[in-house]
């Protein structure tokens, strides 16, 4: 087996089909970039879930004098109401689910509000008694939010029970949908990449049909005949895959770390190390698909 011959053939094939090869490179590049982006989104969602689900709490808002009458017919929640709620949280039915809880009265709620909206003019118009007194409940398993919601909804003196996790789930479902869309686009593009590779290989084989005919006539092995074509497809796709890996790293470095992380400082974003894990995976996907498509294409061409 002469490597010189094989690489000579590969080089000639690539040169002869330069426009097709460029389109293979571009299509694999774009499709794998989409695959990489979808993977980044999923990793980001995973990381955010870990972080935020850990901090998500259930808020039991007590009635204040400003609460709407239908929820709070008795007006401001009495001390009895607070004792009853606290007793229920310590009770053996709920206690196993509750990791800890704490109570914020009007003034504490106002202090927290002012801190959260420090630079916002809304603080000027809000007074302490407008803010609900609240029991913040942290659960051992954040998925158990419904238990607290059911236990306290409609209880006298409780205006509303709100599970912060439901907000997070909304955000995550949006992110999930985005990554699914990316995967959808990527699979359509990967499919067209496969078709493009098969067409290119067939064309390349056709332009070398005299050589192929003689090679078969004099008894060159199938492996020897097919290998240059397979390498041709794989090389083109490998270039695209490497570009896609670079694009994913660039997205992580310049968009996620450079822009998002600066804009949203309290969120833990995926870093370059995560991006680096994706690069060989994208490369493997590209090379495998191209190799597969090329082998099928050249085998079918030679059989026909």
């Amino acid at each position: 087996m002469k490597l010189g011959y094989i690489f000579g053939e590969v080089g000639q094939g690539l040169k002869r089909n330069i426009s097709m090869v460029v389109s293979i490179v571009l299509v694999t590049f774009l499709s794998l970039t989409f695959v990489g982006t979808a993977a980044l989104l999923q990793l980001q969602i995973g990381q955010m879930k870990n972080y935020w689900y850990d901090r998500a709490q259930v808020a039991v808002y007590l009635c204040s004098s400003y609460s709407p009458a239908e929820a709070c017919p008795q007006g401001e929640a009495s001390a009895d109401v607070k004792t009853a709620i606290e007793a229920k949280l310590k009770d053996s039915t709920l206690a196993p689910y509750v990791e800890k809880y704490f109570f914020l009265d009007h003034n504490q709620a106002y202090a927290q509000f002012k801190q959260e909206f420090a630079n916002n003019s809304v603080t000027k118009y809000v007074t302490a008694d407008q803010l609900n007194e609240t029991f913040w409940v942290k659960l051992k398993n954040p998925a158990d939010g419904a238990i607290i919601t059911q236990s306290f909804s409609g209880v006298a003196g409780v205006e509303e029970v709100r599970d912060q996790r439901t907000y997070l789930d909304q955000i995550f479902s949006i992110l999930n949908a985005a990554s699914l869309a990316a995967v959808g686009i990527a699979s359509v593009m990967l499919f067209s990449a496969i078709l493009l590779i098969s067409t290119t290989i067939r064309q390349s084989a056709f332009s070398r049909r005299r050589e192929l005919g003689i090679m078969r006539l004099v008894g060159a092995s199938n492996f020897y005949i097919q290998l240059p074509f397979v390498i041709e497809g794989v090389v083109a796709a490998a270039i695209g895959s490497i570009l896609a890996g670079g694009a994913v790293l660039a997205i992580v470095q310049f968009f996620v770390q450079g822009y998002l992380a600066a804009t949203l400082p309290f969120t833990n974003f995926v870093g370059l190390s995560t991006g680096l894990v994706l690069v060989p995976i994208l490369f493997a996907i590209g090379v495998f698909l191209a190799g597969f498509a090329s082998i099928i294409a050249i085998k079918r061409y030679l059989r026909a």
């Binding site: 087996m1 002469k2 011959y5 005299r210 050589e211 005919g213 003689i214 090679m215 006539l217 004099v218 008894g219 060159a220 092995s221 020897y224 005949i225």
Partner: peptide
């Protein structure tokens, strides 16, 4: 087995020697 045809089937971009050498190269 060797085989020859009415239309010769030579490779036009290779010289005489290269045409003959080609069929030896491709069988290793």
């Amino acid at each position: 087995i060797g085989m020859v045809f009415q239309d010769f089937r030579l490779l036009p971009n290779k010289t005489v020697a290269q045409n003959v050498a080609f069929c030896l190269e491709v069988i290793g």
